[in-house]
């Protein structure tokens, strides 16, 4: 079995404890307009030309392997579980000393759940701490199956309003909420993660809805991820429309306000940059 992987990023410090390697799955059912990994949305391998790297040869080969500058880039690669394992074990010494491990992210991991499950089983055999970052948008049983092999679940909560969520990000909030509850009931460690996106998720009503849900599930910890523009250049070379191009990042005080609001509800809040 092979999975479609877009990137394996070593030395990540934000997506779970310690020093971690993130395996980014390619393909996502949602369409969050703020997505900072737009190369991970499509379920297809994508080939693009990154103009900022291009040295303008007299004739362009449009061939990733031939391009001397690396401007021609391929996003996505089918990998076996073994191939992924080979890559992630390279930093096992760092996981061991820092209580780190491997985080599966995307794209949406649940869209390749069979592959993810095999990968997680192998990781656990190697005594590696496992985490997932998911939108929760997938089959409940598949998610619970993965949870059996996971030490930590980072569960994204974005737009809580059912209609808006469907219209804007193509998400079914009923399914997401149901899955979150199922995970919590399975006694796994779950931390909700809230992207703070001006005009989308960063408004009082949405934040309160999130707090209500989190409290009702008796979760104690929450991550907030302030909007950033680091992904914006990727839209250019992917030739995709980026609606948030001119949206300023939220100010420190705005982020602090959200943090304080959540802390008032006895939540332990971590700002993830």
């Amino acid at each position: 079995m092979k999975g479609l992987i877009v990137n394996i990023q070593r030395y990540s410090l934000q997506d779970g404890d310690g020093i971690r390697t993130i395996v980014f799955f390619k393909g996502c059912p949602l369409r969050c307009p703020w997505c900072s990994n737009p190369e991970s949305i499509s379920f297809e391998i994508e080939t693009v030309k990154i103009l900022s790297k291009c040295i303008h040869c007299p004739v362009c080969s449009y061939d990733v392997d031939e391009c001397p500058s690396g401007a021609m880039t391929r996003f996505g690669q089918y990998m076996t579980v073994d191939e992924v394992i080979q890559e992630v074990v390279k930093d096992q010494i760092f996981y061991d000393t820092s209580n780190g491990g491997v985080t599966l992210s995307g794209g949406e991991v649940l869209s390749q759940s069979a592959f993810a499950k095999e990968l997680l089983i192998e990781l656990k055999k190697l005594n590696i701490h496992t985490a997932i970052e998911t939108s929760g948008h997938g089959r409940t049983q598949a998610l619970l199956d993965l949870a059996n092999h996971l030490d930590l679940i980072l569960f994204d909560l974005k737009i809580m309003d059912t209609i808006k969520a469907k219209q804007i990000i193509r998400a079914d909030t009923t399914l997401i909420n149901h899955n979150l509850k199922a995970l919590v009931q399975s006694k796994k460690k779950v931390i909700p993660r809230i992207p703070l996106i001006p005009g989308y998720t960063l408004d009082d009503e949405n934040i309160h809805a999130i707090i209500r849900l989190v409290k009702s599930l008796e979760l104690k910890e929450i991550h907030i991820l302030p909007f950033h523009q680091y992904g914006s250049n990727k839209y250019e070379f992917l030739n995709k429309d980026y609606k948030l191009k001119d949206v300023p990042v939220p100010s420190d005080s705005t982020v602090q306000d959200v943090k304080v609001k959540m802390e008032k509800e006895d939540l332990h809040v971590t700002i993830v940059h």
Partner: peptide, 12 residues
């Protein structure tokens, strides 16, 4: 974090 990183350095 830095201490943990140093321990990995040691083991390597």
């Amino acid at each position: 974090k830095l201490s943990n990183f140093l321990l990995a350095f040691m083991k390597l």
